[in-house]
Simulated scan of single mutants.
Amino acid sequence: MMKTHDSVKDLGIAALDAARDLLGNVPHLEAGAVRREHPLGSARIDGCIEFEHGDEAYALLIEVKRSGAPRFVRSAVYQLKGYLEHARESAPGDSGQQWIPMLVSPYLSPESRSICMDHGVAYMDLVGNAHLAFDNVYIDRTVAGRPKPATRALRSMFTPKAGAILRVLLRDPARAWRVTELAEAADSSLGHVSNVRKALLDREWIEKQKDGVILVQPDALLKAWREEYRRPVARRISGYTLFQGKQLHERLSGTLNPEPQRPRAIYSSNSAAQWLAPFTRGGMHSLYADEPGARALKEVLKLTRAEKGANVTVSVVKDESLLKDAVQPAPGTFCTCPIITYLDLWNGNDRDREAADHLASKCFPWL
């Protein structure tokens, strides 16, 4: 417990030091008192820095939050504005001092910074992002990248187990989901669904409604996922087949299958996109499979080893949910679902990304 208290105290001190350093960049600014846990009306703000600039007196009123997730930032912004409103009502006359509300956190994402900007609240984080405007002073500083903890937290949302849950939500963004329903649809545990649900709520990508949670920002979710996407862990088999076009598809029509009772194999990447949203034809055929499915593909396609000129790539995936989520755009034809197809293409070459954009225009009108 003492460790938690000390870490909060250290964050408050670091926030005040960082804010004071930021003000130190302003020419002709005279710094005054610096106070922690400063009373503001009947409330108590985390910190206050008084200063003068020109002929005006200012007070930078600082609220410190350990988490800079949008959900907590929005709450902090409302809290700051409430403090100011209450303080103005209870202030004895006009003190002549202008108050500037500021939110400080270890890291603020672009979404969190936008919330502050929309509500006229200054901000800064300990990574270096900052925005402060008063009188004729305007500071706006953006630092590329994220700190490692924030990066790990975001990537943890897109693990294979979490991905199965996210695909269910993205499949029908307008549907409300209860935890038990979502767990059943994603074949996931209640605990894991609850963890993903909390992370999505913190980022304001989903909202609570009376019938469950609903995905209100599917575009933000998918854009974040495509940037953090890692191709499925797989053993890759490359080979050459003499079969092409209609003949190849006819041979595969009895082999492609997503059911666990039989060898499983499905089209992936550009091969899947040809059925979901045709864009361009290429000479490479891509498939996901389990081990029995890979053996079946080798036999049906008469695959031979090719040091150069391979035209078939089979990825033997460990994440079986990718096979379970297969879609059937035509009888006997099974492909990776549109979400996975899109993510695979987006993380390919420039031509693949064009195919991803085309697929999105057909399957994700909200993107």
Rank of each mutant, 00 (worst) to 15 (best):
G254I: 11
E227A: 13
E30T: 15
K3A: 14
A220K: 14
A164H: 12
E37V: 11
E89C: 04
D290T: 01
N25W: 11
D187S: 10
A185N: 05
T4F: 06
F243P: 09
V137E: 02
K298Q: 12
A15Y: 08
G47Y: 13
K3P: 01
W366M: 11
L359C: 02
H285M: 03
M284A: 08
A19D: 12
I49N: 03
V312G: 06
G96E: 01
A150D: 01
H192Y: 07
G212R: 05
A355Q: 11
R74Y: 08
S238T: 08
P101F: 13
R264P: 00
V26W: 05
R74C: 03
A33K: 14
Q97P: 06
G332P: 02
W177G: 13
V213T: 12
K198T: 01
T304L: 04
E320N: 14
Q98V: 10
L201Q: 08
E181F: 09
S194R: 02
T341D: 01
F72K: 10
A273T: 10
A289Y: 07
M2H: 04
L22K: 07
N195Q: 13
K318E: 05
E227G: 05
P218M: 04
A277S: 11
D357M: 05
N311I: 03
R226E: 15
R44F: 01
I45G: 00
A59M: 13
G47F: 14
P260W: 04
G293S: 00
L108V: 10
R141D: 08
V121S: 12
V168G: 08
L11S: 04
I49W: 11
A360M: 08
Y138D: 09
C116S: 12
S90G: 07
F364V: 06
R235P: 01
C337V: 00
K302N: 07
S188W: 05
K3L: 10
A306Y: 00
A87Q: 15
T180N: 06
G47T: 05
A91L: 11
A87T: 04
A91G: 08
R66Q: 14
A355R: 01
R235A: 15
T151W: 14
K198P: 00
F279S: 11
L16P: 00
A144W: 06
M117G: 09
G245C: 13
S112C: 05
A164G: 13
R305C: 01
L170K: 06
R230K: 15
D202F: 07
D211T: 08
H131K: 14
L166H: 06
A360E: 04
D10L: 15
L84K: 00
R71K: 06
P218F: 12
S105P: 05
V104M: 08
L40P: 02
P258A: 08
K318I: 07
S253F: 02
A273Q: 11
E52D: 12
Y138F: 15
V316D: 04
A220W: 05
G254W: 15
A185D: 10
L297G: 02
R226Q: 15
I13Y: 07
T180E: 15
S156T: 10
D17H: 15
S7C: 10
A57G: 12
E250Q: 09
R226F: 00
A87L: 09
F134S: 09
D118C: 14
E228M: 10
A176E: 05
A294K: 08
T341W: 10
A153S: 09
